[in-house]
């Protein structure tokens, strides 16, 4: 499977080392993506990286990826300018089960760049494709200026009630200071009626899951997005195995109930 060529239409820096690319397919129609799926992005000559899809606009046809620079390939992607091209393979994997949220309270819990794969969930609620009884978004980040989609977050208020918590901030920061599990714990979660989508650093997900379970959210209603080394994205290269599962094709979004026994095994 070879990549399709995409052109970068817009590029913006979210904060130093983290940037968002909006791109259009060079030829042909853009692919349709489910919220929570990912693509393999190819920087010419440098290699490919798995990056979750943070937007797939229906109207403008733009594919949106938010990338944090970590290694050689992401550094090569960071150097790309508007008008330049990159390769895209995908979309791959299983996304968020938005259908299940229809008659529930949707609780979105995101940490750091973990907000990226949840952005399409918010947009599907905003444009009416997705529905939930009510939606709360808990977003934890390092600092106020190290949040993704800062200029958009306030507009999301139409669809979600937003609670933000950062590790460090000045006192003029209107949100919380502390870990996201703090406000989560204090919130009145209607456990049995809630469905939770969680994405962030694995440690943050572990603590969030603990709070959710204590609040009576059933394991079958908790979904989380896992990260492992994905190379082929098609279940053929073996790298992203996690117990009996391949993150690339069985995930990256999993129902906690299905993976519960595996989640606590270290070095899996």
């Amino acid at each position: 499977m070879i990549p399709r060529v995409y052109r970068i239409e817009h590029r913006r820096e979210e904060y130093p080392g983290t940037f968002t690319l909006e791109m259009s397919a060079d030829r042909g129609r853009p692919v349709t993506c489910d919220p929570g799926q990912f693509n393999m992005l190819y920087a010419f000559g440098a290699g490919e990286v798995p990056i979750s899809i943070s937007g797939a606009g229906r109207r403008d046809g733009l594919l949106v990826h938010t990338i944090r620079t970590q290694g050689l390939v992401t550094a090569a992607l960071e150097r790309l300018k508007e008008g330049e091209q990159l390769g895209v393979r995908g979309p791959f994997g299983q996304g968020w089960p938005l259908d299940l949220a229809r008659d529930s309270d949707l609780l979105i819990i995101a940490g750091g760049v973990g907000l990226a794969p949840l952005r399409p969930v918010v947009y599907s609620l905003l444009d009416g494709r997705g529905r939930a009884r009510r939606t709360q978004l808990y977003y934890g980040a390092r600092r106020p200026e190290e949040r993704l989609f800062r200029h958009e977050l306030n507009q999301w208020g139409r669809a979600v009630s937003l609670v933000q918590s950062v590790d460090h901030a000045d006192s003029d920061w209107p949100g919380h200071i502390g870990v996201i599990t703090g406000p989560l714990q204090a919130s009145r979660i209607n456990g049995p009626e809630t469905i939770a989508f969680v994405c962030g650093p694995e440690l943050m997900m572990r603590f969030s899951i603990r709070v959710l379970l204590e609040s009576g959210v059933p394991a079958s209603a908790i979904f989380l997005s896992m990260e492992r080394n994905m190379k082929c994205a098609t279940g053929l290269c073996g790298h992203c195995q996690w117990g009996p599962r391949f993150i690339c094709k069985d995930g990256p979004v999993f129902c906690y109930k299905d993976i519960q026994p595996w989640f606590q095994i270290r070095g899996l």
Binding site: G112, R142, D167, G178, G200, P201
Partner: peptide, 16 residues
């Protein structure tokens, strides 16, 4: 909570 904050889980990882 303070311990988790100390871990700086959202920070850039040390250079691999």
């Amino acid at each position: 909570a303070a311990r988790i904050q100390l871990l700086d889980v959202y920070g850039q990882s040390p250079p691999p």
